[in-house]
Amino acid sequence: MSEITLQIDGREVAARKGMTVLEAAKKAGISIPTLCHHEKLEPYGGCRLCTVEVEERGRTKMVAACLYPVEKDLVVKTRTEKVDRIRKMILELLLAHAPDAFELQDLALEYGADRDRFEKESSFCLHCGLCVRYCAEVKKKNAIGFINCGTRREISFIPEIASKECWNCKECFPLCPTEALQAAFVLTKALVFPSPLSELKG
């Protein structure tokens, strides 16, 4: 793997080709906030909280650091007015779901996000997909998945798999940024009312 250098927040940073901006920043001790990122899982690009500004051939654009590959002489800015504005809005949108999640509260403080900007939503889920992807990629059980689409997207346990696998596992619970409240709710629902078809029909 060949070494390249790029610039992050004005610092020269060495990285290996194939790394993402997030990995290169982490290696250099520069912190970029994430919610849906997990080292054991494939990059997901769902929360967009790691959005940074990159400059390439004179043009700036906003990209997700967890997915954007490093390039020679790439110029990355992890804290600009625009980046902060995006992160603040993302946090406010998520705080409508999980206003008491510690991770969100810490970030809200840093980015000046107002936890009450939007009316509270009934679901706690932030759709980070950590539970879904951990079950699929690490445990290879697929006991939990996403159903429906758009604003109706939710997590859902598959009763037939969950009733066999989940009692002794629940490894996905501690991954949840909302203290697994939504996961516990839907797992219970799946086990008490094991009718996958009614779930899918929503």
Binding site: C47, I90, L93, F146, C149, G150
Partner: peptide, 12 residues
């Protein structure tokens, strides 16, 4: 109902 609902800026 017609977006995928994966990313926060779009879904929320």
């Amino acid at each position: 109902g017609e977006s995928c609902g994966k990313c926060v800026p779009c879904r929320e």
